[in-house]
Design a binder for these strands. Structure first.
Lengths: 329, 329
DNA sequence: GTGAAAGCGCTAACAA
DNA sequence: TTGTTAGCGCTTTCAC
C-alpha cells in the first residue's frame, strides 16, 4: 500500500501538498490538485488512519459499552448511536463486559491508550467510581442507566413515572394483587421502577406486599420463568404481574403457559422495553416503549459535542405505554 | 497524559528501556525494571496504542461485519469471536452494513486505512467481488455464508445436509405436504437448504410443488407471518412448514395462532438457528442448532492465524436437529 | 501556492 | 544491559 510520499513523488509535489489535497485545504491550485488526485488514483492510495490519528491525537472511534449482546434491548439504541456517529465521521467499537471487571478494564484502557476518543456506557453493572475517574480526563456519556449523583451526563427515560403508569394501568383494569418482578435493586432503574410501582399502589390504597416483589438474578428468560414459578406458588396469588424487562416477562409468560394458566384471564402481564419479540408472543405483550433509536442518537450527539469541547446537559426522553393482549380485559 | 519520554526521564533511563519494560523484554535488570515501573505508576502512564500501532503497523482490531444487529442469530457467534480475540490481544469492531454498499465501503476502507487488521464477514449480502479484491491484500475469513468458489477461507455448517435432515424428520412424522419458507436464493445458504429439502422429498417419492416454496424478502418476523398467510391461503394447504430461520418461523407461528390453527396439530413447524427465543414460544420450536459460539471462536482463530502468516483452511462444523413441541405428534 | 522540516509516541536495529 | 538513532505516515508551522 502506497504512502503519502510515494504519491507526492509521483505527482511531483511535496507530501504537504498531498495532505492539503486530502484535507480539502483551499490553498492548492486546481492544476496541482488534479495532478495529486491522478497520482492517488494511479497508486490506489488510501491515507493511513494510524498516521493521521497519531498526528492529530484522536482515533475517531467511540466505545459503546454494554453488559451483554444477547439482550435485544440494546440493538435499537446501538443503531441510533451508529447512524449518528458514522454520519459525523466516527466509528463505534462495541464492547461487551459480561459484567466482568477485567473486561471493563480492557475497554477503559483503550480510552486511556488513545485508541478511543470517548465512551457511551450502557452498562448498569459498571464500576461507577472507575467510570467517574475516567470521566475526569475523557468524554463519557451514559445511556439508560446513569449516575445518581449526576456527575456524568446521561440520556434516559423517567423510570419512576413509567413504572407508575404501568401499575396505574393495571389498577384501572381492576387488579388489586399486583406483583413486581424486579431485577437487582443495585441498579438505579430497578430502584426507580419499584418506587413508581409503590407510588401507584399507595395512591390507590392498595397494600404493598413484600412477597409480591420478586428480585431476579439476571435478565434472561429463565429468570422470568423462575420468578413466575415462585409467584404462582404463593398462597395468595397475584392477578397481575409487572416485569421490569420484556425478556423477563416473556420467560414469565412461558411459565404461565406451562402451568396451563391463561394470560390475561388468570394473570395479566406487563413487560418493559418493547423489544421486537414482545409483539410475537401469544398473547402479545403489553410493555413500555423507550425511544431507543432516539436515545442512541442523542447519546452519540452528546458525546461528539463533548469531544468538540461543548458542555452538554443530560436529557430525559418520553416513554410510552403500549397496551397489547396481555392486559386486555 | 504522560508519554514514554517523560517516564524515561523520571526513571533516569532511555525511552528504549521503558519500551523494553512495557513489552517484557528480558534484557532489563531487575533494578532498572523497578525504577521504570515506579515511574510509570507515579506518572499514571498508559502507553499510547496509536504510537505503538503506527510503529508496528498493526491496529490489533478485527472487523466483524454483519448485516444487522437485530438478528439474534449473530449474538452467540460474536461472543465466540470476541472471547477468542480478546484472549489473543485483539479487539473487535462490530460493523452493521444494513446491506448498504456505502456502509460496506466505509468498513472496507478501515482495513485499507490500516485501522483494522482483518475482517470476519458474516454478511450474506456482501459484494463478493469487492471482498475478493480486499482479500488479495488483507486477511479475511467468512463465517456462515461463504464464497462458493472457495477463494476465501470460511467456517460454516453443511446447510444442504441440515435441511435434508429437517425434511426427513417431517416425512418420518408422516407429513407429505411440506412447504419451505426460504429466504432469497441469491444467498448461498438458501440455495443449499433448498437443495437438501428437495433431495429428501425426492428420496421419499414426494412431489416438489413450487407453490409450497415461498421466498421472503428478509428475515424479520413479518416476513414469516406474511409467508405463512400465503401458504394458508393455498387450495392445497401444507401440513408442515420448514422455515430457514427461527425469526421467520416465529413470525409464521404467530400467523398460525392468529388464524386460530394449532401447531403442531394443524401444521408442524421447523425453524433454523436455535436462537434463544425459539425455546420460549408456545409451542416451543423445533429447529437446527448451529454451533454458533464454536463457529465464532473458529473464525477468530482462523483470522488471527492468518494474520500471523499461517495458511488456514476452511472448516465445516456439525449442526444438530433439536426436536421440540412444534413437531411433536 | 508550495516545500522543508519537525514531531505526534512508539519500537527495533545497532552500537557501546 | 542499556542508550542512540531512525523512522512508521501523517499534518502543520514557517519560510519562500
Amino acid at each position: 500500500m502506497a504512502n503519502i510520499r510515494e504519491v507526492a513523488n509521483k505527482a511531483g509535489v511535496s507530501s504537504a501538498t498531498v495532505s492539503r489535497v486530502l484535507n480539502n485545504a483551499h490553498a492548492v491550485t486546481e492544476n496541482t490538485r488534479q495532478k495529486v488526485e491522478q497520482a492517488i488514483k494511479d497508486l490506489n492510495y488510501e491515507p493511513s488512519m494510524l498516521g493521521r490519528n497519531l498526528r492529530n491525537s484522536e482515533s475517531r472511534l467511540l466505545l459503546v459499552v454494554i453488559p451483554n449482546f444477547s439482550n435485544p434491548y440494546y440493538t435499537e439504541i446501538i443503531n441510533g448511536i451508529e447512524d449518528y456517529s458514522i454520519e459525523q465521521g466516527y466509528n463505534i467499537l462495541l464492547c461487551e463486559t459480561d459484567s466482568n471487571p477485567n473486561r471493563e478494564n480492557i475497554f477503559f484502557n483503550m480510552v486511556k491508550n488513545k485508541l478511543a476518543d470517548g465512551v457511551i456506557s450502557m452498562d448498569p453493572t459498571v464500576n461507577m467510581d472507575k467510570l467517574q475517574e475516567l470521566a475526569e480526563k475523557h468524554a463519557i456519556v451514559m445511556c439508560s442507566e446513569y449516575d445518581e449523583q449526576e456527575r456524568i451526563p446521561y440520556v434516559a427515560i423517567n423510570n419512576e413515572r413509567a413504572a407508575y403508569k404501568v401499575a396505574k394501568h393495571l389498577i384501572r383494569l381492576g387488579h388489586e394483587k399486583i406483583a413486581l418482578i424486579n431485577s437487582d435493586e443495585k441498579f438505579l432503574y430497578a430502584r426507580q421502577r419499584r418506587k413508581g410501582y409503590e407510588r401507584a399502589l399507595k395512591e390507590f390504597g392498595l397494600p404493598i406486599k413484600l412477597e409480591w416483589i420478586y428480585h431476579t438474578q439476571g435478565l434472561d428468560f429463565q429468570d422470568g420463568s423462575q420468578a413466575m414459578r415462585k409467584l404462582l406458588q404463593l398462597e395468595e396469588c397475584p392477578t397481575a404481574v409487572f416485569a421490569v424487562s420484556d425478556t423477563i416477562a416473556i420467560g414469565a409468560l412461558k411459565e404461565v403457559n406451562v402451568q396451563e394458566l391463561k394470560v390475561p384471564d388468570d394473570i395479566a402481564l406487563v413487560g418493559f422495553d418493547n423489544i421486537s419479540f414482545s409483539n410475537m408472543t401469544n398473547p402479545t405483550l403489553t410493555t413500555v416503549a423507550q425511544p431507543m433509536y432516539q436515545m442512541g442518537k442523542t447519546a452519540a450527539s452528546m458525546l461528539i459535542n463533548r469531544l468538540q469541547g461543548q458542555k452538554v446537559d443530560s436529557v430525559v426522553l418520553d416513554d410510552e405505554l403500549i397496551i397489547r393482549e396481555s392486559t386486555l380485559n
